[in-house]
């Protein structure tokens, strides 16, 4: 594990006009580290995730990424072409709704293979073999490789979205409520899968969730957000077992249903 952080977030704020999205957020994320962002609806989790992943430009503050060449780059100053390349090679983004992250009208194999083709892979047989591997890794039968995700259950779609993102061996994955729309039993299986993959691949991840159980299971560290600000952060076990802020205590004791 590198001693330099993968992501450096310094005083990031995002305003929608006069409305606060998130404000004055600073933290560092290391390779292989999983950070959970928790908080109730409207607390700014998605806004922050969007600012980190360049889906939104922060109003102020800097997000820097440690590139594979060893240099830190200010994401806001990166050219669009390079940024999009980074997003589909070294990063992943798992949407809550799989339809937002998949091509629903092309086969599962092509969904997984798309990133490979985007970076210049021109061997059909290899692309298909890699896609098969990944379907297996996310527990989708290889016999479904030519089916469109339209024919898949919610849990399968989400697993396909994960495979599609991981096929280029990214170092950093963003997830927005990855278990959000799923039944409880399906959620458990997906969480196990994500935990295994993150561990095996040594992925760094930023996972937005309103579900503290998800944070507990997946994350090393967590940040608690309220009204756009981070009010408490620390190792996940510490925050959940010994919350310092009264608001976090309410969250943890489930008096606040988030």
């Amino acid at each position: 594990m590198s001693t330099l952080p993968l992501l450096k977030v310094n005083d990031v704020s995002k305003f929608y006009g006069s409305r606060i999205g998130c404000r004055n957020v600073s933290f560092e994320l290391y390779a292989g580290e999983v950070l959970a962002i928790v908080g109730e609806s409207g607390s700014g989790k998605t806004t922050l995730l969007s600012c980190l992943s360049t889906r939104l430009m922060p109003t102020s503050g800097i997000v820097e990424y440690h590139m594979r060449d060893g240099q830190y780059r200010d994401l806001a100053r990166m050219g669009e072409s390079e940024r999009r390349f980074l997003m589909r090679t070294d990063w992943g983004f798992v949407h809550q709704n799989p339809a937002d992250g998949l091509r629903m009208t092309v086969s599962a194999g092509a969904n997984v293979g798309e990133r490979l083709m985007a970076v210049g892979d021109r061997h059909y047989g290899n692309i298909r073999a890699t896609a098969s591997d990944w379907l297996e890794r996310v527990e989708i039968g290889v016999d479904r490789i030519d089916d469109q995700p339209r024919a898949f259950s919610g849990g399968m779609r989400q697993r396909l979205q994960i495979a599609r993102n991981l096929v280029t061996s990214p170092r950093l994955v963003f997830m927005d409520e990855p278990t959000g729309g799923l039944d409880v039993s399906v959620q458990a299986r997906l969480l196990d899968l994500v935990r295994g993959l993150v561990h095996d691949l040594g992925l760094a991840a930023v996972i937005v969730t309103h579900d503290l159980a998800v944070a507990r299971l997946l994350s090393h560290r967590m940040m608690v957000m309220k009204d756009g600000a981070v009010i408490e952060q620390g190792l996940t076990d510490r925050v959940l077992d010994d919350p310092r802020e009264p608001y976090t205590q309410l969250l943890v004791s489930s008096i606040l249903q988030v």
Binding site: E80, G109, Y124, I145, D146
Partner: peptide, 30 residues
Amino acid sequence: LEPRETETRKMHALEEYGLMHVKLYEDIAR
């Protein structure tokens, strides 16, 4: 594969043509 004109224009501008091969991949798969 990409009905949005804003997106296809961007793909041309940035030379992002992976999608063309997705189409050919589908052809072969089928």
